[in-house]
Amino acid sequence: MIRRTLDITAQIATGQGAIWAVALNDDGVWTGGSDGWIRRWSVTGEPLGEGAGTPPPTLTNPRGAEVFQACAVCHALTPDDEQRAGPTLHGVFGRRIGTAPGFDYSDALLSLDIIWTPQTVSELFEFGPDAYTPGSRMPEQRIPSASDRAALIQFLETATR
């Protein structure tokens, strides 16, 4: 059916303040707003769910958010999120390894002299925790794809501020 009018047929009333991103896919309409939440809507404007500005994949860096999903099991992105198996990644860049408040680090990790930067985070996942942070409790995970590591870092640079 071809519409021959510009009349509004559906309206999404988000209640989330300014909308900074809108995307369409097979699941409906996704909105990202100034309140830091991503919401999913049907094409008729009915809410289908919401989640804090982390995966489901963000609209600004869907690949980085997708790669982060494996990390989200153990790591939060906000300072006030409940502790998980790993420390929060909030404010990770520029922070010395083993210094996030409130987390019980292994002695092996505390003995390392690493400052988290885009380069050191990339090296962690290029070589794997067993090689890069030997003796830490972090499970062995590698990201062999340089483009996936770059997408993850770009996502973290935004999501951990």
Score class of each variant (00 low, 15 high):
E66L: 11
L89Y: 01
L77C: 04
Q83N: 15
C74Y: 12
Q69D: 11
E82G: 14
F68Q: 02
H90Q: 07
C74N: 02
E66P: 00
C71V: 13
L77R: 01
R84Q: 11
P79I: 00
E82V: 05
V73A: 12
C74S: 11
Q69I: 06
R63C: 08
C74T: 08
P79E: 08
A72H: 12
L77H: 09
H90M: 05
G64N: 14
P87V: 03
E82W: 06
E66R: 15
L89V: 05
V73Q: 08
R84S: 06
P87C: 07
E66I: 00
R84P: 02
C71I: 10
D81T: 10
T88F: 02
P87I: 06
L59H: 05
C71W: 02
R63V: 15
A65R: 00
D80Y: 07
G86E: 01
A76L: 12
T78N: 14
N61R: 14
A72C: 04
A72K: 12
Q69N: 09
E82Q: 10
P87F: 03
C74F: 03
L89E: 01
D80E: 11
N61M: 04
V73G: 15
D81Y: 03
H90K: 03
V73P: 08
E66H: 10
F68H: 08
R84L: 10
T60I: 07
C71F: 13
A76H: 01
V67F: 10
F68T: 02
R63H: 14
P62M: 01
P62R: 05
R63Y: 05
A85C: 09
E82P: 07
P79W: 04
A65Q: 04
H90V: 02
A70H: 04
E66A: 15
